[in-house]
Design a binder for these strands. Structure first.
Length: 97
DNA sequence: CTAATGACCATTA
DNA sequence: ATAATGGCCATTA
C-alpha cells in the first residue's frame, strides 16, 4: 500500500483553508491514476487525514465516506467557501510545489 | 491472471 | 449548462 501512503502524505500536506484536486495530487506523484487517488482514500478513509480538502478538478465535491454534506460543512468550517457542493478553485486551490 | 469497480479528467455533442 | 464517450491507474473479486 505504498500508493495509499503517498496520497496520505500529500493530503496532510494541504494547508488549512485550502483545497486540492485529485488531478494535482496524481500529477505530483507522477501518475495519471486520478481514480486510484480517490480510491485509495476511500478504501483507507483515514480519519486523521484531511481528505475532505480534496475535491474534483472542476471544484465540485465528489463523494465522501461519511457524508458529502459533512465534507462541505468541514470545508466551510476551515474557511473555504463552499457553494452548492462547489469550491472556487481560483481562490482555494492549493498548488503543490 | 482476467474482469469489474471507483471519492476522476478531458473532449465532444 | 448537461449528457455521453473514452482513457487513465490501483485495488478487489
Amino acid at each position: 500500500m505504498n500508493f495509499g501512503k503517498r496520497v496520505y502524505e500529500l493530503c496532510m500536506k494541504i494547508p488549512k483553508g485550502k483545497v486540492s484536486t485529485y488531478g494535482e495530487i496524481a500529477g505530483k506523484m507522477k501518475t495519471k491514476g486520478y481514480r486510484a487517488v480517490g480510491n485509495a482514500l476511500n478504501k483507507n478513509k483515514f480519519k486523521e487525514v484531511p481528505c475532505h480538502r480534496v475535491v474534483a478538478s472542476n471544484g465540485h465535491l465528489c463523494g465522501f465516506a461519511g457524508g458529502l454534506k459533512k465534507k462541505a460543512e468541514l470545508l466551510r468550517k476551515e474557511g473555504v467557501e463552499v457553494r452548492a457542493f462547489r469550491v472556487d478553485l481560483k481562490r482555494f486551490l492549493y498548488k503543490f510545489r
